[in-house]
């Protein structure tokens, strides 16, 4: 299956849903990624997908979209661009070690088991300069320790 069809299907859209895009670029004018002084244009991404062109890992939205839905909220057709970006990330396997650990945890136990996620991603967390934030993170570490339990095994769907 072509990347476009696969992603649009993942995001729960039909290709025709994207054809309603008017090209007004209001999505670009409100996009959070532009607050980072990075040029992002959701409308261009939609257009590329609609034309069947491949979007790569370096697209600013694939790298930085924060799922804030400001674009959806501003869009005259309420197109859920963040859902499409999530589909793209899944398709291009762009997730960080941390995100992979979360998905692994859900696949094994049916829930996110935080002790596993943090152990699995500890090297990534240390490398990414998290050590200097450890003091501010203590509240969350304490919460995890206080609520520690054996992973719950959810019955498979």
């Amino acid at each position: 299956m072509q990347q476009t069809d696969y992603i649009i299907e993942l995001a729960g859209h039909k290709k025709e849903d994207l054809s309603v895009c008017l090209g007004c670029r209001i999505c670009a004018s409100v996009c959070t990624v532009n607050d980072l002084e990075i040029n992002a244009n959701p409308q261009e991404l939609l257009m590329n997908l609609f034309l069947g062109l491949n979007v790569d890992k370096d697209d600013p939205l694939v790298r930085f979209c924060t799922n804030c839905y400001r674009c959806t909220s501003a869009c005259p057709w309420q197109i859920r661009i963040p859902d499409i970006v999530r589909g793209l990330r899944e398709n291009l396997s762009t997730g960080s070690v941390f995100e992979h650990a979360i998905i692994e945890s859900i696949n094994i136990w049916g829930r996110m088991y935080e002790p596993y996620v943090f152990l699995r991603a500890s090297l990534f967390v240390l490398k990414d300069g998290w050590a200097r934030h450890m003091f501010r993170m203590m509240e969350y570490v304490i919460n995890i320790v206080r609520s520690i339990h054996v992973p719950h095994k959810v019955k498979r769907i």
């Binding site: 299907e9 993942l10 793209l88 398709n91 998905i103 049916g110 829930r111 769907i157």
Partner: peptide, 22 residues
């Protein structure tokens, strides 16, 4: 009882709404 993760904003697959449906 026995709830599973809803996939939050990390899960990108088709399973996303299926998880919450279950």
């Amino acid at each position: 009882p026995d709830w599973n993760c809803c996939g939050a904003l990390e899960y990108g697959g088709k399973e996303l709404t299926n998880l919450s449906r279950e």
